[in-house]
Design a protein around this nucleic acid. Sequence first.
DNA 1: GCCAACGTTGGC
DNA 2: GCCAACGTTGGC
Length: 152
Amino acid sequence: MNYWLFKSEPNAYSIDDLKADKSTPWDGVRNYQARNLLRDDIKKGDMVIFYHSNAEPPAVAGLAKVIKEAYPDATAFDPTSKYFDPKSNPEDPRWYVVEIAHLKTFQHPIPLAELKDVKALEGMVLLQKGSRLSVQPVTEKQFKAICKMAGE
DNA sequence: GCCAACGTTGGC
DNA sequence: GCCAACGTTGGC
C-alpha cells in the first residue's frame, strides 16, 4: 500500500465537502507530474492525506482512501467546465482522475507550521521550498507520524 | 495583497 | 531547443 497527499483549497473543496459527498473523483488536476501519479501509481486501497492549501492556517485536515483507479477526467471534455482542455479528447485523454472516499476528519487539523517542526517529516515533499505539486507521494514513516500527531 | 517559485507557452 | 514572458500556486 502506498501513501499520498492531495491538496485542496477548502474554499473550492474541503474535507467537509468530501465527508458530505462520501466519495469523489479527484478531477481538475492539470499538472503532468501529478497526472502521472494519478494515472500510473495511485492504486485502490492507497491512503490519502487531505491537505487544505490556501487556508487559514494551511493544514492537514483528514484522511481519505483510494476507491477507484485512474480513468479519464471528463471535466477536460466539457466546454462549460472551468477545467475544460481542448487538447484533451475521449480518444486520447490527457488528464486522469482517481476516486477517493472520506475516512476521517481530524478533530484538530495539523497546521503546516507544526509539520515543519517534526523530525520524522524532514524531507516531506510538502515541506520542500517552492513545492507546488498538488498530488504528492508520502512515505509510510511520514504518514504514520502525521496520524500520530492527529491522535489517530 | 505581495511575491518567490515553478510550469507552460510561443517566438525565434 | 532556447528562453523570455506570462500565468498559477500558495505561504506569509
